[in-house]
Amino acid sequence: MSGPFGQGERLRQGEMAPARRLGPWTAADVAAYAAASGDDNPLHFDPAIAAAAGLASPPIHGMLLMGCFEPYLAAWRPDARLVRLSAKFIRPVLAGEAVELSAKVVRAGDPAVLRLKVKRDAELVCLAEAILRVDP
């Protein structure tokens, strides 16, 4: 395991995973996720439908964003097991945009609770929570 943590070490209050830049996602990335997930909602492909929904251009799937959370946490703490993951999609992320993902332990112990934030510049676009168990 890489990183400063020993195998099985509990997550500590206030610990933070290094922030990671995600994206920008291309139209091809969105198409690949649509094919892999089966979610072909035209909102993500049709500029006219996106415009009718009040968006400047088609957004990426919220689940494409959420799908990045588990790999992010696993890269930080490969010894931890995800038992709950939840997300609120606050603002759409448009294709071509990049965001920053960060995570902080807000309740230590086993399981530990982490708050994940996704920001586009200073704007919060997604707020999530992960519950992790660290097997000894």
Binding site: L43, G62, M66, V83, L85, A87, K88
Partner: peptide
Amino acid sequence: LVPVHEGQSFDYERP
């Protein structure tokens, strides 16, 4: 009508 994803959660007892 088109669906826009507002929230999602997963809870795992076992993988």
